[in-house]
Write a protein that binds this DNA or RNA. Structure first.
Lengths: 195, 195
DNA sequence: ACAAACATATTAACACTGTTAATTATATTT
DNA sequence: AAATATAATTAACAGTGTTAATATGTTTGT
Protein backbone atom coordinates (compact mmCIF):
# COMPACT_ATOMS: atom_id res chain seq x y z
CA UNK A 1 0.00 0.00 0.00
CA UNK A 2 2.70 2.45 1.03
CA UNK A 3 5.23 1.14 -1.46
CA UNK A 4 2.68 1.64 -4.18
CA UNK A 5 2.25 5.26 -3.16
CA UNK A 6 6.00 5.80 -3.13
CA UNK A 7 6.43 4.31 -6.57
CA UNK A 8 3.54 6.33 -7.89
CA UNK A 9 5.07 9.53 -6.58
CA UNK A 10 8.39 8.59 -8.14
CA UNK A 11 6.89 8.18 -11.58
CA UNK A 12 4.94 11.38 -11.18
CA UNK A 13 8.26 12.98 -10.36
CA UNK A 14 9.77 11.77 -13.63
CA UNK A 15 6.98 13.42 -15.58
CA UNK A 16 7.23 16.61 -13.58
CA UNK A 17 10.99 16.72 -14.02
CA UNK A 18 10.61 16.22 -17.77
CA UNK A 19 8.00 18.97 -17.96
CA UNK A 20 10.20 21.31 -15.98
CA UNK A 21 13.10 20.73 -18.35
CA UNK A 22 10.99 21.49 -21.39
CA UNK A 23 9.47 24.64 -19.92
CA UNK A 24 12.88 25.81 -18.81
CA UNK A 25 14.65 25.27 -22.11
CA UNK A 26 11.98 25.49 -24.80
CA UNK A 27 9.12 27.35 -23.15
CA UNK A 28 5.61 26.36 -22.36
CA UNK A 29 4.47 26.44 -25.99
CA UNK A 30 6.71 23.46 -26.67
CA UNK A 31 5.21 21.41 -23.90
CA UNK A 32 3.17 18.51 -25.26
CA UNK A 33 2.20 15.07 -24.05
CA UNK A 34 4.48 13.38 -26.60
CA UNK A 35 7.29 15.73 -25.76
CA UNK A 36 7.02 15.21 -22.02
CA UNK A 37 6.62 11.45 -22.27
CA UNK A 38 9.61 11.20 -24.55
CA UNK A 39 11.79 13.12 -22.10
CA UNK A 40 10.43 11.11 -19.18
CA UNK A 41 11.02 7.78 -20.92
CA UNK A 42 7.39 6.74 -21.17
CA UNK A 43 4.69 6.63 -23.77
CA UNK A 44 2.41 9.62 -24.05
CA UNK A 45 -0.67 7.80 -22.78
CA UNK A 46 1.05 6.69 -19.59
CA UNK A 47 0.82 10.27 -18.42
CA UNK A 48 -2.92 9.87 -18.00
CA UNK A 49 -2.44 7.13 -15.41
CA UNK A 50 -0.87 9.74 -13.13
CA UNK A 51 -2.38 13.09 -14.06
CA UNK A 52 -5.88 14.16 -14.97
CA UNK A 53 -4.60 16.12 -17.93
CA UNK A 54 -1.48 17.84 -19.16
CA UNK A 55 -2.44 21.16 -17.52
CA UNK A 56 -2.46 19.56 -14.10
CA UNK A 57 1.02 18.23 -14.75
CA UNK A 58 2.25 21.58 -15.98
CA UNK A 59 1.09 23.38 -12.86
CA UNK A 60 2.90 20.88 -10.68
CA UNK A 61 6.06 22.64 -11.85
CA UNK A 62 5.08 25.90 -10.19
CA UNK A 63 6.18 24.81 -6.74
CA UNK A 64 9.68 23.84 -7.86
CA UNK A 65 10.13 26.96 -9.95
CA UNK A 66 9.07 29.07 -7.02
CA UNK A 67 11.71 27.46 -4.86
CA UNK A 68 14.22 28.45 -7.52
CA UNK A 69 12.82 31.94 -7.34
CA UNK A 70 13.13 32.07 -3.57
CA UNK A 71 16.78 31.09 -3.76
CA UNK A 72 17.37 33.59 -6.55
CA UNK A 73 15.74 36.46 -4.67
CA UNK A 74 17.17 35.65 -1.25
CA UNK A 75 20.62 35.39 -2.83
CA UNK A 76 20.30 38.98 -3.99
CA UNK A 77 19.18 40.43 -0.66
CA UNK A 78 20.91 38.23 1.87
CA UNK A 79 23.18 40.93 3.29
CA UNK A 80 20.36 43.41 3.77
CA UNK A 81 18.56 43.93 7.07
CA UNK A 82 14.78 44.00 7.31
CA UNK A 83 12.99 47.16 6.28
CA UNK A 84 11.74 49.24 3.44
CA UNK A 85 14.93 49.11 1.42
CA UNK A 86 14.89 45.34 1.58
CA UNK A 87 11.31 45.30 0.28
CA UNK A 88 12.52 47.38 -2.63
CA UNK A 89 15.39 45.01 -3.31
CA UNK A 90 13.16 41.96 -3.05
CA UNK A 91 10.71 43.53 -5.48
CA UNK A 92 13.54 44.35 -7.83
CA UNK A 93 14.92 40.82 -7.55
CA UNK A 94 11.45 39.42 -8.17
CA UNK A 95 11.38 41.32 -11.46
CA UNK A 96 14.94 40.25 -12.27
CA UNK A 97 13.97 36.64 -11.72
CA UNK A 98 11.19 36.73 -14.27
CA UNK A 99 13.33 38.72 -16.68
CA UNK A 100 15.88 35.94 -16.52
CA UNK A 101 13.22 33.22 -16.74
CA UNK A 102 10.33 34.65 -18.76
CA UNK A 103 9.06 31.12 -19.34
CA UNK A 104 8.29 30.96 -15.63
CA UNK A 105 6.24 34.14 -15.83
CA UNK A 106 4.26 32.60 -18.67
CA UNK A 107 3.48 29.59 -16.54
CA UNK A 108 2.77 31.57 -13.40
CA UNK A 109 0.49 34.21 -14.87
CA UNK A 110 -0.30 33.68 -18.54
CA UNK A 111 -1.13 30.01 -18.81
CA UNK A 112 -4.83 29.21 -18.47
CA UNK A 113 -5.66 27.28 -15.33
CA UNK A 114 -7.21 23.84 -15.54
CA UNK A 115 -10.40 23.14 -13.60
CA UNK A 116 -8.82 20.49 -11.44
CA UNK A 117 -9.19 20.66 -7.68
CA UNK A 118 -5.58 21.56 -6.87
CA UNK A 119 -5.87 24.65 -9.03
CA UNK A 120 -6.95 26.94 -6.22
CA UNK A 121 -3.92 26.16 -4.11
CA UNK A 122 -1.53 26.65 -7.01
CA UNK A 123 -3.18 29.96 -7.88
CA UNK A 124 -2.79 31.06 -4.29
CA UNK A 125 0.82 29.98 -4.26
CA UNK A 126 1.47 32.14 -7.31
CA UNK A 127 -0.39 35.25 -6.30
CA UNK A 128 1.08 35.35 -2.80
CA UNK A 129 4.66 34.76 -3.91
CA UNK A 130 5.93 38.34 -3.62
CA UNK A 131 4.08 38.91 -0.36
CA UNK A 132 5.59 35.78 1.10
CA UNK A 133 9.09 36.88 0.15
CA UNK A 134 8.75 40.21 1.94
CA UNK A 135 6.50 39.15 4.82
CA UNK A 136 9.11 39.64 7.53
CA UNK A 137 10.02 43.07 6.21
CA UNK A 138 6.46 44.27 6.28
CA UNK A 139 6.08 43.09 9.84
CA UNK A 140 9.27 44.94 10.70
CA UNK A 141 8.03 48.13 9.06
CA UNK A 142 4.72 47.95 10.89
CA UNK A 143 6.37 47.30 14.23
CA UNK A 144 8.73 50.23 13.67
CA UNK A 145 5.94 52.59 12.62
CA UNK A 146 7.24 53.05 9.10
CA UNK A 147 3.80 52.04 7.86
CA UNK A 148 0.54 51.47 9.66
CA UNK A 149 -0.88 47.97 9.24
CA UNK A 150 -3.67 49.31 7.08
CA UNK A 151 -1.26 51.38 5.05
CA UNK A 152 1.04 48.42 4.62
CA UNK A 153 -1.75 46.21 3.27
CA UNK A 154 -2.66 48.87 0.78
CA UNK A 155 0.89 49.43 -0.46
CA UNK A 156 1.66 45.73 -0.57
CA UNK A 157 -1.35 45.19 -2.77
CA UNK A 158 -0.42 48.09 -5.05
CA UNK A 159 3.11 46.83 -5.36
CA UNK A 160 2.08 43.29 -6.21
CA UNK A 161 -0.41 44.35 -8.84
CA UNK A 162 1.83 46.99 -10.37
CA UNK A 163 4.90 44.80 -10.62
CA UNK A 164 3.07 41.91 -12.20
CA UNK A 165 1.24 44.32 -14.46
CA UNK A 166 4.52 45.81 -15.58
CA UNK A 167 5.97 42.38 -16.24
CA UNK A 168 2.86 41.38 -18.16
CA UNK A 169 3.07 44.42 -20.40
CA UNK A 170 6.79 44.14 -20.95
CA UNK A 171 7.06 40.40 -21.47
CA UNK A 172 3.82 39.87 -23.37
CA UNK A 173 3.36 43.24 -25.09
CA UNK A 174 6.96 44.32 -25.54
CA UNK A 175 6.30 47.68 -23.94
CA UNK A 176 8.56 49.49 -23.33
CA UNK A 177 10.66 48.27 -26.22
CA UNK A 178 14.08 48.14 -24.62
CA UNK A 179 15.33 46.23 -21.63
CA UNK A 180 17.11 49.20 -20.06
CA UNK A 181 14.04 51.36 -20.45
CA UNK A 182 11.99 48.75 -18.62
CA UNK A 183 14.50 48.58 -15.79
CA UNK A 184 14.14 52.30 -15.29
CA UNK A 185 10.37 52.06 -15.34
CA UNK A 186 10.45 49.34 -12.69
CA UNK A 187 12.82 51.24 -10.44
CA UNK A 188 10.67 54.34 -10.56
CA UNK A 189 7.61 52.23 -10.00
CA UNK A 190 8.93 50.54 -6.89
CA UNK A 191 10.25 53.79 -5.41
CA UNK A 192 7.07 55.62 -6.31
CA UNK A 193 4.86 53.12 -4.54
CA UNK A 194 6.98 52.62 -1.42
CA UNK A 195 7.97 56.22 -0.73
CA UNK B 1 -6.17 48.77 -58.99
CA UNK B 2 -8.35 50.63 -56.52
CA UNK B 3 -11.31 48.31 -56.94
CA UNK B 4 -9.07 45.42 -56.17
CA UNK B 5 -7.94 47.06 -52.97
CA UNK B 6 -11.53 47.77 -51.99
CA UNK B 7 -12.62 44.20 -52.60
CA UNK B 8 -9.63 42.89 -50.72
CA UNK B 9 -10.43 45.04 -47.73
CA UNK B 10 -14.03 43.88 -47.88
CA UNK B 11 -13.10 40.23 -47.73
CA UNK B 12 -10.61 40.92 -44.98
CA UNK B 13 -13.50 42.55 -43.20
CA UNK B 14 -15.60 39.42 -43.48
CA UNK B 15 -12.87 37.39 -41.82
CA UNK B 16 -12.34 39.99 -39.12
CA UNK B 17 -16.07 40.20 -38.45
CA UNK B 18 -16.28 36.43 -38.18
CA UNK B 19 -13.33 36.34 -35.81
CA UNK B 20 -14.85 39.09 -33.68
CA UNK B 21 -18.10 37.16 -33.37
CA UNK B 22 -16.31 34.01 -32.26
CA UNK B 23 -14.12 35.80 -29.72
CA UNK B 24 -17.13 37.65 -28.38
CA UNK B 25 -19.39 34.66 -27.97
CA UNK B 26 -17.12 31.66 -27.52
CA UNK B 27 -13.81 33.14 -26.43
CA UNK B 28 -10.42 33.13 -28.01
CA UNK B 29 -9.77 29.45 -27.29
CA UNK B 30 -12.53 28.57 -29.75
CA UNK B 31 -11.01 30.61 -32.54
CA UNK B 32 -9.67 28.41 -35.29
CA UNK B 33 -9.09 28.75 -39.01
CA UNK B 34 -11.92 26.31 -39.81
CA UNK B 35 -14.19 28.05 -37.36
CA UNK B 36 -13.51 31.52 -38.71
CA UNK B 37 -13.73 30.48 -42.35
CA UNK B 38 -17.01 28.71 -41.73
CA UNK B 39 -18.51 31.81 -40.12
CA UNK B 40 -17.10 34.02 -42.87
CA UNK B 41 -18.41 31.78 -45.64
CA UNK B 42 -15.04 30.74 -47.05
CA UNK B 43 -12.76 27.77 -46.94
CA UNK B 44 -10.11 27.73 -44.24
CA UNK B 45 -7.19 28.11 -46.62
CA UNK B 46 -8.62 31.26 -48.20
CA UNK B 47 -7.70 33.05 -45.01
CA UNK B 48 -4.04 32.77 -45.95
CA UNK B 49 -4.59 34.84 -49.08
CA UNK B 50 -5.43 37.79 -46.87
CA UNK B 51 -3.55 37.28 -43.62
CA UNK B 52 -0.08 36.01 -42.86
CA UNK B 53 -1.44 33.73 -40.15
CA UNK B 54 -4.38 33.40 -37.83
CA UNK B 55 -2.71 35.47 -35.10
CA UNK B 56 -2.47 38.47 -37.38
CA UNK B 57 -6.17 38.15 -38.10
CA UNK B 58 -7.02 37.82 -34.44
CA UNK B 59 -5.17 40.99 -33.52
CA UNK B 60 -7.04 42.92 -36.20
CA UNK B 61 -10.02 42.66 -33.83
CA UNK B 62 -8.30 44.74 -31.17
CA UNK B 63 -9.10 48.06 -32.82
CA UNK B 64 -12.83 47.36 -33.05
CA UNK B 65 -13.04 46.01 -29.53
CA UNK B 66 -11.26 49.07 -28.26
CA UNK B 67 -13.81 51.29 -29.93
CA UNK B 68 -16.45 49.32 -28.07
CA UNK B 69 -14.47 49.95 -24.92
CA UNK B 70 -14.27 53.67 -25.57
CA UNK B 71 -18.03 53.90 -25.99
CA UNK B 72 -18.55 51.78 -22.88
CA UNK B 73 -16.24 53.90 -20.75
CA UNK B 74 -17.31 57.29 -22.07
CA UNK B 75 -20.93 56.27 -21.53
CA UNK B 76 -20.17 55.80 -17.84
CA UNK B 77 -18.41 59.13 -17.31
CA UNK B 78 -20.11 61.43 -19.77
CA UNK B 79 -21.69 63.70 -17.16
CA UNK B 80 -18.46 64.18 -15.23
CA UNK B 81 -16.17 67.16 -15.68
CA UNK B 82 -12.42 66.81 -16.18
CA UNK B 83 -10.30 66.14 -13.15
CA UNK B 84 -9.10 63.58 -10.68
CA UNK B 85 -12.52 62.13 -9.94
CA UNK B 86 -13.09 61.53 -13.64
CA UNK B 87 -9.77 59.67 -13.87
CA UNK B 88 -11.00 57.45 -11.06
CA UNK B 89 -14.29 56.82 -12.83
CA UNK B 90 -12.58 56.10 -16.12
CA UNK B 91 -10.25 53.66 -14.41
CA UNK B 92 -13.19 52.00 -12.73
CA UNK B 93 -15.09 51.81 -16.01
CA UNK B 94 -12.01 50.37 -17.69
CA UNK B 95 -12.07 47.54 -15.17
CA UNK B 96 -15.83 47.14 -15.54
CA UNK B 97 -15.42 46.82 -19.27
CA UNK B 98 -13.01 43.91 -19.00
CA UNK B 99 -15.10 42.31 -16.27
CA UNK B 100 -18.04 42.35 -18.65
CA UNK B 101 -15.91 41.15 -21.58
CA UNK B 102 -13.13 39.01 -20.16
CA UNK B 103 -12.55 37.56 -23.61
CA UNK B 104 -11.32 40.98 -24.66
CA UNK B 105 -8.82 41.06 -21.83
CA UNK B 106 -7.53 37.70 -22.96
CA UNK B 107 -6.98 39.04 -26.44
CA UNK B 108 -5.53 42.36 -25.30
CA UNK B 109 -3.07 41.06 -22.74
CA UNK B 110 -2.87 37.28 -22.54
CA UNK B 111 -2.71 36.17 -26.16
CA UNK B 112 0.82 35.74 -27.48
CA UNK B 113 1.74 38.26 -30.14
CA UNK B 114 2.66 37.14 -33.63
CA UNK B 115 5.92 38.36 -35.13
CA UNK B 116 4.24 40.20 -37.98
CA UNK B 117 5.12 43.82 -38.67
CA UNK B 118 1.84 45.34 -37.50
CA UNK B 119 2.36 43.80 -34.06
CA UNK B 120 4.15 46.80 -32.63
CA UNK B 121 1.34 49.19 -33.45
CA UNK B 122 -1.29 46.86 -32.02
CA UNK B 123 0.74 46.39 -28.87
CA UNK B 124 1.02 50.15 -28.51
CA UNK B 125 -2.69 50.57 -29.08
CA UNK B 126 -3.36 48.14 -26.26
CA UNK B 127 -0.89 49.41 -23.71
CA UNK B 128 -1.83 53.07 -24.19
CA UNK B 129 -5.57 52.45 -24.03
CA UNK B 130 -6.18 53.65 -20.47
CA UNK B 131 -3.85 56.62 -20.87
CA UNK B 132 -5.66 57.66 -24.02
CA UNK B 133 -9.01 57.52 -22.29
CA UNK B 134 -7.90 59.86 -19.49
CA UNK B 135 -5.49 62.06 -21.44
CA UNK B 136 -7.58 65.22 -21.20
CA UNK B 137 -8.09 64.76 -17.48
CA UNK B 138 -4.39 64.47 -16.81
CA UNK B 139 -3.75 67.62 -18.79
CA UNK B 140 -6.45 69.33 -16.77
CA UNK B 141 -4.92 68.18 -13.49
CA UNK B 142 -1.48 69.36 -14.51
CA UNK B 143 -2.76 72.75 -15.66
CA UNK B 144 -4.63 73.16 -12.36
CA UNK B 145 -1.66 72.15 -10.22
CA UNK B 146 -3.34 69.03 -8.86
CA UNK B 147 -0.30 67.09 -10.00
CA UNK B 148 3.03 68.20 -11.39
CA UNK B 149 3.77 66.87 -14.86
CA UNK B 150 6.43 64.55 -13.47
CA UNK B 151 4.16 63.41 -10.71
CA UNK B 152 1.35 62.79 -13.17
CA UNK B 153 3.54 60.59 -15.38
CA UNK B 154 4.53 58.54 -12.38
CA UNK B 155 1.00 58.04 -11.11
CA UNK B 156 -0.38 57.35 -14.56
CA UNK B 157 2.18 54.61 -15.01
CA UNK B 158 1.44 53.13 -11.57
CA UNK B 159 -2.27 53.17 -12.26
CA UNK B 160 -1.95 51.48 -15.63
CA UNK B 161 0.32 48.71 -14.37
CA UNK B 162 -1.66 48.12 -11.18
CA UNK B 163 -5.05 47.97 -12.84
CA UNK B 164 -3.96 45.58 -15.54
CA UNK B 165 -2.07 43.55 -12.97
CA UNK B 166 -5.18 43.32 -10.82
CA UNK B 167 -7.26 42.24 -13.81
CA UNK B 168 -4.64 39.68 -14.76
CA UNK B 169 -4.65 38.14 -11.33
CA UNK B 170 -8.41 38.17 -10.97
CA UNK B 171 -9.34 36.97 -14.45
CA UNK B 172 -6.52 34.51 -14.97
CA UNK B 173 -5.75 33.40 -11.42
CA UNK B 174 -9.16 33.78 -9.79
CA UNK B 175 -7.73 35.88 -6.98
CA UNK B 176 -9.56 37.20 -5.05
CA UNK B 177 -12.20 34.50 -5.33
CA UNK B 178 -15.35 36.60 -5.33
CA UNK B 179 -16.48 39.33 -7.66
CA UNK B 180 -17.51 41.71 -4.92
CA UNK B 181 -14.22 41.26 -3.14
CA UNK B 182 -12.40 42.16 -6.34
CA UNK B 183 -14.50 45.30 -6.79
CA UNK B 184 -13.46 46.44 -3.33
CA UNK B 185 -9.83 45.73 -4.08
CA UNK B 186 -9.99 47.76 -7.26
CA UNK B 187 -11.71 50.70 -5.61
CA UNK B 188 -9.12 50.83 -2.85
CA UNK B 189 -6.39 50.45 -5.43
CA UNK B 190 -7.54 53.37 -7.55
CA UNK B 191 -8.08 55.64 -4.59
CA UNK B 192 -4.80 54.61 -3.04
CA UNK B 193 -2.82 55.47 -6.13
CA UNK B 194 -4.55 58.73 -7.01
CA UNK B 195 -4.83 60.27 -3.55
C1' DA C 1 -15.63 35.15 -79.70
C1' DC C 2 -11.77 32.54 -78.23
C1' DA C 3 -7.52 31.41 -76.05
C1' DA C 4 -4.03 32.69 -72.84
C1' DA C 5 -2.89 34.72 -68.54
C1' DC C 6 -3.89 35.86 -64.16
C1' DA C 7 -6.25 35.97 -59.66
C1' DT C 8 -8.77 33.71 -56.34
C1' DA C 9 -10.91 29.75 -53.76
C1' DT C 10 -10.93 25.03 -52.68
C1' DT C 11 -9.48 20.38 -51.53
C1' DA C 12 -5.88 17.31 -50.06
C1' DA C 13 -2.18 16.61 -47.36
C1' DC C 14 1.27 17.15 -43.59
C1' DA C 15 2.74 17.48 -39.07
C1' DC C 16 1.24 18.52 -35.11
C1' DT C 17 -2.05 18.63 -30.65
C1' DG C 18 -4.88 16.25 -26.34
C1' DT C 19 -7.33 12.44 -25.01
C1' DT C 20 -9.55 7.74 -24.77
C1' DA C 21 -10.18 2.74 -25.66
C1' DA C 22 -8.37 -1.48 -26.76
C1' DT C 23 -4.43 -4.17 -26.49
C1' DT C 24 -0.19 -5.87 -24.97
C1' DA C 25 3.31 -6.51 -21.51
C1' DT C 26 4.60 -6.89 -16.80
C1' DA C 27 4.10 -7.93 -12.00
C1' DT C 28 1.69 -9.96 -8.30
C1' DT C 29 -0.95 -13.24 -6.05
C1' DT C 30 -3.01 -17.62 -5.65
C1' DA D 1 2.72 -22.70 -12.95
C1' DA D 2 -1.78 -20.49 -13.63
C1' DA D 3 -4.84 -16.86 -12.74
C1' DT D 4 -5.37 -12.30 -11.73
C1' DA D 5 -4.44 -7.54 -11.23
C1' DT D 6 -1.65 -3.62 -12.70
C1' DA D 7 0.73 -0.79 -15.67
C1' DA D 8 2.41 0.71 -20.25
C1' DT D 9 1.73 0.73 -24.99
C1' DT D 10 -0.26 1.23 -29.56
C1' DA D 11 -4.11 2.61 -32.37
C1' DA D 12 -7.51 5.67 -33.12
C1' DC D 13 -10.34 9.97 -32.96
C1' DA D 14 -11.15 14.65 -33.42
C1' DG D 15 -9.06 18.52 -33.39
C1' DT D 16 -5.24 22.35 -34.68
C1' DG D 17 -2.24 25.63 -38.18
C1' DT D 18 -0.21 25.78 -42.47
C1' DT D 19 1.23 24.74 -47.32
C1' DA D 20 1.00 22.87 -52.06
C1' DA D 21 -1.58 21.38 -55.70
C1' DT D 22 -5.82 21.72 -57.98
C1' DA D 23 -9.98 23.85 -59.60
C1' DT D 24 -12.64 27.87 -60.56
C1' DG D 25 -13.58 32.35 -62.15
C1' DT D 26 -12.07 36.80 -64.33
C1' DT D 27 -9.56 39.67 -67.19
C1' DT D 28 -6.83 40.54 -71.09
C1' DG D 29 -5.01 40.39 -75.93
C1' DT D 30 -5.78 38.74 -80.40
Amino acid sequence: MNNKKIQEERIKGYFIEATKNIIKSEGISNVSTRNIANEAGYSYATLYNYFKDVKELVFYCVQDFQEEGEIFILGKVKELSFGKERIKSISQAYVDFFLEYPNYFELFYLERLSDVSSTKQIAHLITSFLDRMSKADWEYCIKNNIYTRENAEQIKSQLNFAINGALLIYLNRKTPESYTEFLQVVEKLINGILD
